[in-house]
Amino acid sequence: MIGLFALLLGFPLIASQFQLDLANQVFLAVIGSLALMLLTGYAGQISLGHGGLLAAGAYTVAILSKDFGASFWVTIPASALSGALLGVIFGFPSLRLRGVYLAVSTLALHFIVIYLGTEYETHGSYDSGVIITPPVLLGYSLESPRAWYFMMLLFAVLAWLVAANLLRSKTGRAWRAIRANETVAEALGIGVSRYKLLAFVVTSSMTAVAGALFGYYRGFVSGEAFSIFIAIQYAAMIIIGGMGSLIGAVLGAVFVTAFPYFIEYLLFMLPGADQAANALFAVNYAAFGVVMIVFLIFEPGGFVGLWRRIANRWVTSAPNVVAVART
């Protein structure tokens, strides 16, 4: 544990700009992925609206810092708040809808949020996106990936702590009960509606903060950055990582964030790489689709499930527990 912290803190000393940038992207993804894991992996609610929530955070920063000159200390809590508000809206359909219907309602809300964002861009005549100036903290301007590294690390750790503590609390138990069986949860006296909404609020709030950080970090906010592909990537993170596990969320975030760079690396090992460069994003898309399908079909438990299976095979060669059913 201490070793991990030492590694995380020492990393900027040895890492290149590129590696630091990648690490920052991973931290951002970890925040969003932990948030989605709470919602889907623990409370059992499907969402395809994660891109819209990230966008909401980023646009909050854009609007507040551009139109009102607000500082980092204002915009981050504000984005958390706007995320929480959106969480109520995103969560509202969940009181009545489940499964596919819930998924498409969040998908639809995603498109609506993005539309409102681009509408803001056109009306504010930020034709190709809103430029955001780097935040100044204690007289120090956050610009380099190295400076951002510690900020992102801090938020990622905070997100982990929030998630882990929530799961240990009464709220976490209620979420698990709802995921296991809503009717039973209701019968046990758990306020199902309240806890469902709470799950959406917490998730959306955390995700919006990630979006706000993303806006600052990129220095640029545009609706095009938050395509439906983003939402799918986050869904991929929790599935590839392993449903119902915080570690899974982190692993999934690392995997999905690093994946395009890995593909790029592989592609440039091939001969004729120059032509391939144009098609990079297409290769990336196709490969991502394939990897996702492979996980969904062959290892729906993700990395965590895979690890458990391997561990089980090695540890227990115990005899089959064969019992005569007496039900």
């Binding site: 089959n320 527990v321 064969v322 019992a323 005569v324 059913a325």
Partner: peptide, 8 residues
């Protein structure tokens, strides 16, 4: 046998 464990 159900689910590899329970013999019905």
């Amino acid at each position: 046998v159900y689910k590899h464990v329970v013999r019905a």
